[in-house]
């Protein structure tokens, strides 16, 4: 059995909005292993993104425990969590979220600025990452000068430039056309297979989910047992077909 990289125990998250309590996650128990490529699927509001944010320590759980890469995140303060995130997590957003005033190269270099690397080393790493995603000829373009697919590939380069253990992608193909989406999924699969990165991807798209080795479903804030699919989800898929 390979090493467990994510383990959640009775993980719950409740948001309070205008005095209403919203249960975004309830008693989620999940184990993911090194080198896995897992897709998290489920209807809107099922808690997929919330789970991803908790795994990345971008948010704190209301109750339960989460151990990512052997680290109980509850024991870290904000400063240490930021450093931990920089070293171990690469995050890819649906809306790319590049800094518009920086070039592709500068965007990719940004997480490395938090390391002790010298400028020349940082730039060398950033160039390598951009070449890896096939954008060696777009290094000095700003996000406005890139297509959506290219922007997302820059975002993936930024996510992998620190050589993180875990790549978390929140609807990475949600804003892309079919061709660009396929390129991005191929890239994520390559990172998983060639570089052994553990990838957790939240998606609505069943085609995208098929790029993953395993699909886990969330429904009404709960993680369904492995192999189970939400009832509404099956019906919708059948109607689509």
């Amino acid at each position: 059995m390979s090493e467990t990289v994510i383990e959640t125990r009775n993980l719950s998250k409740t948001f309070v909005r205008d005095s209403f309590e919203i249960h975004a996650l309830e008693d989620v128990n999940l184990q993911l292993h090194r080198g896995e490529f897992v897709a998290l699927m489920g209807p809107s509001g099922s808690g997929k993104s919330t789970l991803l944010h908790l795994i990345a320590a971008m948010d704190r759980p209301s109750s339960g425990q989460i151990v990512t890469l052997g680290q109980d995140l509850a024991t870290l303060d904000d400063h240490d969590i930021a450093r931990w995130r920089n070293q171990h997590i690469g995050f890819v957003f649906q809306t790319f979220n590049l800094i518009p005033v920086l070039t592709a190269l500068e965007n990719v270099e940004l997480p490395l600025k938090l390391t002790r690397l010298k400028k020349a080393e940082r730039l060398a790493h950033a160039r390598t990452a951009l070449e890896l995603v096939g954008l060696g000829d777009r290094m000095h373009h700003t996000p406005r000068q890139l297509s959506g697919g290219q922007e997302q590939r820059v975002a993936i380069a930024r996510a992998v430039v620190t050589d993180p253990d875990l790549i978390l992608a929140d609807e990475p193909t949600g804003n892309l056309d079919a061709v660009s989406a396929r390129e991005v999924l191929t890239l994520l699969s390559r990172l998983n297979q060639e570089f052994g990165k553990t990838v957790v991807m939240v998606t609505h798209d069943p085609h995208a989910a098929h790029a993953a080795q395993k699909i886990r479903y969330l429904d009404k804030a709960r993680l369904l047992p492995e192999g189970d699919v939400p009832e509404d989800w099956t019906m919708a898929a059948t109607q689509k077909r």
């Binding site: 990345a56 930021a82 995130r85 920089n86 995050f91 979220n97 940004l110 938090l114």
Partner: peptide, 16 residues
Amino acid sequence: VREVGILKTLGFTRGA
């Protein structure tokens, strides 16, 4: 504000 969220995701601390 959104970019602050992005920078934090990349590992920027509050102080930075």
